[in-house]
């Protein structure tokens, strides 16, 4: 039952991504119909705690978490082609911010502060590292996760003498709504980012950075700002997630899986359009839930990563542009009834 409900809600999230893509593509037809459906789908997701089982909103919270991580990762790394592996660092900074502040401050405050802390960290890191290209940037950003984790562990061991922290909990339903709120904010941000000439500049950097600089784009500024905006969302959801964890230590907060899984989801879903990473995130979160609960019966709960790996390899081999690429091919074939023709998307 919970799989059915959360799958339906996930489809609603995919729809909202598709809706934004459509707006950005300046598609005018059926404006009222699609907007109406959007409101309906959002209402369907928002009322999940009312009609769903008590577990449904909890699972849905996890799905939205991964959607936000995958979409915000794609926001920067998709168009620019800079492979950031710092997601876990920004996510962890959000988690630790909440660990310090929850209980003394209401959730909106520590969510914003968590996002802001990651934003500022990303500005600094971006200014230092966005001159690096390709693999060097990827390695440095991954190193950042490890660096923060070890520094925190060191401080806890030698300075404060503590080990981890307890986080003041927030009830599941409230967490769900905050997560959904951040998702809506992310969609709105993605829309305005891509609609402006900023989005154009971002894509031009990914395609030909030197030429972008030649045409007058302040490439360093565009890269750093986008990197920081995407980090804001990672930090904000980190802060929300922390209240669900109750206890955090550096190993939990800065777990590199939070870097790799969103990347995997984005690649699987396809990065060209907004709804791609949403499909990927929803699919893998549901699959993980299913696999871990099923395999756990046989004591093999941790083997789910094996399946992820196989699926990812197959996806890269057979659908290089992700699910989005397959859907685009099919719709074009269906519309034209002829061979697939290339045209400019987005």
């Amino acid at each position: 039952m919970q799989y059915l409900l959360t799958s339906i809600c996930s489809l609603c999230m995919v729809y909202s991504g598709w809706f934004i893509d459509r707006l950005l593509g300046k598609e005018k037809r059926g404006k009222w119909l699609t907007s109406g459906v959007l409101l309906l789908t959002l209402a369907l997701v928002a009322t999940l705690p009312v009609y769903g089982t008590s577990y449904a909103p909890i699972l849905m919270t996890t799905i939205i978490l991964y959607i936000i991580l995958a979409v915000s990762w794609t926001m920067f790394s998709g168009p620019t082609g800079y492979m950031s592996l710092a997601t876990a660092a920004f996510f962890g900074v959000g988690i630790y911010t909440a660990a310090f502040m929850a209980g003394d401050f209401p959730p909106p405050v520590f969510i914003l502060v968590g996002g802001a802390a990651s934003f500022i960290l990303a500005l600094g890191v971006g200014a230092l590292t966005l001159r690096l290209r390709g693999i060097y940037f990827a390695i440095f950003t991954f190193g950042l996760v490890e660096l923060i984790r070890h520094v925190l562990a060191f401080i806890e061991l030698h300075v404060t003498g503590t080990r981890g922290r307890f986080v003041f909990g927030v009830d599941n339903e409230t967490i769900f709504y905050y997560m959904l709120g951040v998702f809506v904010l992310l969609m709105i941000t993605a829309y305005f980012l891509n609609r402006s000439k900023f989005g154009l500049a971002l894509r031009s950097i990914g395609e030909y950075e030197a030429a972008a600089a030649h045409t007058g784009v302040n490439v360093t500024m565009v890269k750093i700002v986008t990197f920081a905006v995407s980090a804001f969302f990672m930090g904000a959801v980190g802060a929300i997630w922390a209240t669900k964890l109750h206890y955090v230590d550096p190993g939990i907060a800065f777990n590199p899986l939070f870097t790799f899984i969103p990347v995997l989801m984005a690649i699987f879903g396809g990065m060209g359009l907004l709804y791609g990473p949403i499909i990927g995130a929803a699919f893998f979160t549901l699959l993980k839930e299913f696999l871990t609960t099923t395999l756990a019966k046989y004591g093999l709960g941790e083997l789910y990563m094996l399946f992820f790996g196989v699926i990812l390899v197959a996806a890269i081999l057979f659908m290089p542009n992700g699910v989005v690429g397959v859907i685009q091919r099919l719709t074009q074939k269906w519309r034209k009834g002829g061979p697939v023709e290339e045209h400019a998307d987005t």
Partner: peptide, 8 residues
């Protein structure tokens, strides 16, 4: 030329 070949 240095065009953005994947853009319109």
């Amino acid at each position: 030329r240095r065009l953005f070949v994947e853009m319109s």
